Measured scan of single mutants.
Amino acid sequence: MTEYKLVVVGAGGVGKSALTIQLIQNHFVDEYDPTIEDSYRKQVVIDGETCLLDILDTAGQEEYSAMRDQYMRTGEGFLCVFAINNTKSFEDIHHYREQIKRVKDSEDVPMVLVGNKCDLPSRTVDTKQAQDLARSYGIPFIETSAKTRQGVDDAFYTLVREIRKHKEKMSKDGKKKKKKSKTKCVIM
Rank of each mutant, 00 (worst) to 15 (best):
Q22T: 09
G12D: 12
S17I: 01
Q61P: 14
I21G: 13
N26V: 03
S39W: 12
E63D: 11
Y64V: 08
T20L: 09
G12K: 05
D47Y: 03
D38K: 01
D57I: 01
P34K: 13
G15P: 00
G12N: 07
E49A: 09
G10F: 00
D47Q: 06
E37F: 06
L23A: 14
T58W: 07
I55V: 15
L52N: 07
T50N: 11
I55Q: 11
I36S: 01
G12Q: 04
A18R: 03
L56V: 14
T35N: 14
R41K: 04
Y64T: 13
E63G: 06
E49L: 03
V45G: 12
V7E: 04
Y32H: 07
Y64S: 13
F28R: 03
V9Y: 07
Q43M: 09
Q25T: 13
L23E: 15
I24H: 03
E49V: 10
V14Y: 09
S17T: 04
E31S: 13
Y4K: 14
A11D: 12
I24M: 11
I55S: 15
Q61T: 10
T2Q: 11
T2K: 12
I55H: 11
Q61G: 07
L19G: 12
T58Y: 08
E63F: 03
I55A: 15
T58E: 06
D38W: 02
Y40N: 02
E3K: 10
E31A: 12
T50W: 07
E62P: 11
G13K: 09
D33R: 04
L53P: 11
A11P: 10
Q25S: 09
N26G: 13
D38Y: 04
L19S: 15
G13N: 08
Y32P: 11
L53W: 06
E37R: 01
G60S: 15
L53C: 07
Q25C: 10
K16Q: 15
V14R: 06
V44N: 08
Q43A: 10
V45F: 06
L6G: 02
V9W: 11
L19K: 12
K5F: 00
L53G: 08
L56P: 02
I46M: 08
G13D: 11
F28L: 05
C51A: 09
D33T: 02
E37W: 04
G60K: 15
G10K: 02
T35Y: 15
D33P: 15
P34V: 15
G13S: 10
K42Y: 05
V44L: 12
G48I: 03
E3R: 08
I46H: 10
E62Q: 10
E3T: 10
Y64F: 09
L19V: 10
T2H: 13
E3Y: 06
V45S: 12
Q25E: 05
E31N: 12
D54Q: 05
Y4C: 13
A11W: 05
E62D: 13
G12T: 05
Y64D: 11
L53K: 05
G13P: 03
D30A: 08
G60Y: 13
Y40M: 13
Y64N: 10
G15C: 00
K5N: 06
D33F: 04
D33W: 04
L23F: 11
I24Q: 12
D57E: 02
Q61D: 08
Y4V: 13
G60H: 15
V9G: 03
V7R: 02
K5Q: 05
E31R: 09
E63W: 03
L23G: 14
T50D: 09
R41S: 02
I46W: 07
I46F: 07
I36G: 01
S17P: 00
G60T: 15
I36T: 02
G10H: 00
G13R: 05
L6P: 04
D54T: 07
E49C: 06
P34M: 15
S39V: 11
I21H: 15
Q61I: 09
E3G: 12
G10V: 00
I21N: 14
